[in-house]
Design a protein around this nucleic acid. Structure first.
Lengths: 254, 254
DNA sequence: CGCTTCTTTGATTCAACTCAATGGATGTGG
DNA sequence: CCACATCCATTGAGTTGAATCAAAGAAGCG
């Protein structure tokens, strides 16, 4: 439960964005060497945090947002009746905590799904630097914009797709994100439980499990607990929706 | 179908943010008089557009975002198979088009649901001014942050709530937004069709209609076509979820 | 090794969808 | 001003996809 905050915090070491392999996926994207140095001064890396450690919690004062550096992080909100809704899963180079800007406090919580490291991006300092570095300001806006577009896509998936299509879309989405990070598009490990997948997609754990079994039966995937092999990527793609020949009347104004 | 673009465009007149009643809901929030003047120089108002006029369409180059000044606007995306997903309904003082920043083109379309006016906020010029006016940069980040938080809330509603709870939440959400704009919290007109409500919430038109009838039967509301009267606000609130005493197992890790 | 947690599988139920038909409002042209 | 067409909303009947309930199997942990 050591989450930082010791008298002397050895965990907070100056980040090295210049040499970071996530460079082009992350906040520094598009910055030149000089600008990078200005950024590095304020960005702090974390020591590894173990699975289940919170990076921030809802209601915490908002001081920084955070870039995942290694491992994976789940972001969720809890409503008045204690129900959890997972907002997203985040991988290296992706940034979390944007929701906190408006009211100066976090509205989500972020917790590591496995051992992870992250970088702290102190909001005030970053926005100060933004005034001097137009590219950085631009990149900030782009990242926020992307987050909104992603949310829109997610809404489409949740609202319009069947359970089967949701799962296929989810697997493909992870695949392409892992690929962007230099990993296989066909084989990866799920860092999250069936429960968490279901929560995110608006399905029950049983439905997730059944569909995994079905996909496996049909030779689309091989699944062994957390280990996923996408055996037939085109087929999975075609399930994602958009090519279905059995249109429903579920509010598609055509 | 006159959507601007005439040889001489009389419709683009300098906006008057200082005297605009939406001032504190909109982009200028928190700016002092001097800063407001700098902003006004680049913001352009529109002449009234009639119902069904597009402000922008997906794939259009992204040059500006837009503040709704009067009337109401629906924002939606269309997927590969032509299905429409409504992303949101926007009212005076609310800002649309943020999604376009990342790829320099819009990913959504925005169309007026009734006669409306709007202001154009040219992106490049606004970001230039942001460098000089920290408060403006801050407000931009806050608006983007709010959009993300709203999306998160919507996801919770869509994923975790029953049809009845979704409709109640929707009615309350509109109520509070109208109230913020100085209108009655109890009586308003729906600018959108049942179809559009259903599309947004992930329900069919029949379900929306049936629930409106049910709410009316139970004395919660009076509904006459587009005219809504919330007769029993507390009761509607209590339906919104979070107080239900019949917990489901739909992925609520308690 | 025993306990707990996670996952899978089966049987059953139900909320919301689909299909179908009617009714009311609005608009158009003769 | 009326007849007709269109669009939107309502209501009913029947179906179904995913949830719920239940139980057993597999993996991880102390």
């Amino acid at each position: 439960m050591i989450e930082s905050g010791q008298v002397i915090d050895f965990s907070k070491i100056k980040a090295n964005c210049s040499n970071c392999s996530l460079h082009e996926l992350c906040l520094p994207r598009g910055l030149n060497v000089d600008d990078l140095e200005k950024l590095e001064v304020v960005v702090k890396g974390s020591r590894p945090i173990e699975k289940g450690t919170h990076i921030f919690r809802a209601e915490d004062p908002f001081e920084s947002f955070y870039a995942v550096r290694s491992g994976s992080v789940k972001v969720y909100i809890i409503n008045e009746s204690g129900e959890e809704q997972i907002i997203g899963f985040y991988f290296p180079g992706e940034i979390i905590g944007f929701d906190g800007i408006e009211h100066h406090k976090h509205t989500c919580s972020a917790v590591s799904m496995e051992t992870a490291t992250y970088c702290s991006l102190p909001y005030e300092k970053i926005t100060d630097i933004c005034k001097q570095i137009p590219d950085l300001q631009n990149q900030m806006f782009r990242l926020l914009s992307r987050e909104i577009s992603n949310d829109n896509q997610l809404l489409m998936t949740i609202n319009k797709r069947s359970a089967e299509e949701k799962i296929a879309t989810f697997l493909i989405n992870l695949s392409s994100r892992f690929q962007k990070r230099g990993y296989s598009a066909k084989e990866y490990n799920l860092p999250m439980s069936r429960q968490e997948i279901g929560n995110y997609l608006g399905l029950t754990i049983e439905t997730v499990s059944r569909l995994f079994t079905k996909f496996q039966r049909n030779g689309l995937v091989k699944i062994n607990r957390k280990a996923i092999i996408l055996e037939n990527l085109p087929a999975i793609h075609s399930i994602c929706g958009g090519f279905s020949d059995k249109p429903t009347n579920k509010n598609t104004m055509v």
